[in-house]
Design a binder for these strands. Sequence first.
DNA 1: CAAAAATAATTAACAATGTTAAAATAAAAA
DNA 2: TTTTTATTTTAACATTGTTAATTATTTTTG
Lengths: 223, 223
Amino acid sequence: MKNKEIQEQRMKGYFLEAAKELLKAEGLKSISVRNIAERAGYSYATLYSYFRDLNELIFLCVQDFYEECKEQVQQVTRKKEKGIKKLKAAIRAYADFFIQYPGIFDLFFTETIGNAPNKKQVLELIQHSLDSICEEDWHYCMSWGLLPGDRIGLMKSQLRHSLLGLLLLYLNRSTPASYVDFVSRFNVLVNAIIDDHLPGAMAAGRQTTVNNALISVKIGNNK
Amino acid sequence: MKNKEIQEQRMKGYFLEAAKELLKAEGLKSISVRNIAERAGYSYATLYSYFRDLNELIFLCVQDFYEECKEQVQQVTRKKEKGIKKLKAAIRAYADFFIQYPGIFDLFFTETIGNAPNKKQVLELIQHSLDSICEEDWHYCMSWGLLPGDRIGLMKSQLRHSLLGLLLLYLNRSTPASYVDFVSRFNVLVNAIIDDHLPGAMAAGRQTTVNNALISVKIGNNK
DNA sequence: CAAAAATAATTAACAATGTTAAAATAAAAA
DNA sequence: TTTTTATTTTAACATTGTTAATTATTTTTG
């Protein structure tokens, strides 16, 4: 009875790995039962012995992709010293992950999730992905008084939604047209949300912040 | 030669009308060539005499839906007196339009637009839809000094992206779960963006604004 | 170890999709 | 009224997700 379980998990793993590879390489539109099964080395109908349907299979990838995203963000920001700059870098790395894998963005935010078994947890994981990945940075900035604790909830929420909208327009609507312009808009938005809530940055310093953001576009930084 | 043109436009109209009805009633997932053609009273292949493919047809609906959205926003906010409250009401009505017709949201923001003939204009229309629909209100608030003119660009951009992210999570990820909660979050976000930039509302008044937004959730206002 | 039972995997099949080519119908011109 | 042209429809194809029937493989049992 234990072997059964092990073998079943192994089989599931083959299909999951194939689906993940395909999703990262070709995107959601290229995902199909026959495609996945072929890459896994089985017939298409075999998939249905281990998953209720295609929907269940692809949404089982979410957990792994979340871990991968988290790992990548941590790797990019590892050397940076803690503080607001690192927090911003983490948010940027989070965005870059989805730009690198648009198929994962689709899976996370646009593909309809039907009746996956653990639907609720998957939705929670997706919705809080940005917050939980940046949790340490938020906590550091808050505990050292770099950010006002009573406004962090609002800032998180603003960032989550703004970044989601920004990514959606960039990935699905080619707006803005280039990655450089995307980064520019990204910086404006992030700085407007974070810097404007900085303890010291009231009336006087605000406009400067935003203008600086517009100027501080680094070219050739990524992709 | 003129009759030819008229008849062709008429035929296109039948298919477009059918597609629009279907999209509003059933959503994008129920859109199919055979479905549209049946509703239009023709065979499925006839559609290809008037449109290059399905993609062209459905993205030709965008213009009409934009007008309809604009009309609905104006109708809802017509009686309100000009000012910031009316501006907020317009933004809210814009959001409500997409909540009423999730299929139109999908069409505008998530469906992949392939090679529609006027692709560029369609993308422009979609991207600036919120701004252009609320243009009068922005202009009024600015010219009467209710909002600082040098920050309106930033505010528009923040609103556009935040609202898009909010709608995406609500419509495609059931987050938040209820419409009441959606309106609550909507108010928090909109107020945080608009009120915090108000000329008079600096350091002192800000937190109050946000908290009020959390409280001022109107129940049973819509849908 | 060989026959029977249970399990696993594959092929066949179905309905629905977008799209194209051939056939049939309707309209216009001669 | 016949011929030509334009329009609409039916047939067909490839691809999709999914299920049922069939085959191959493993496990159990005598």
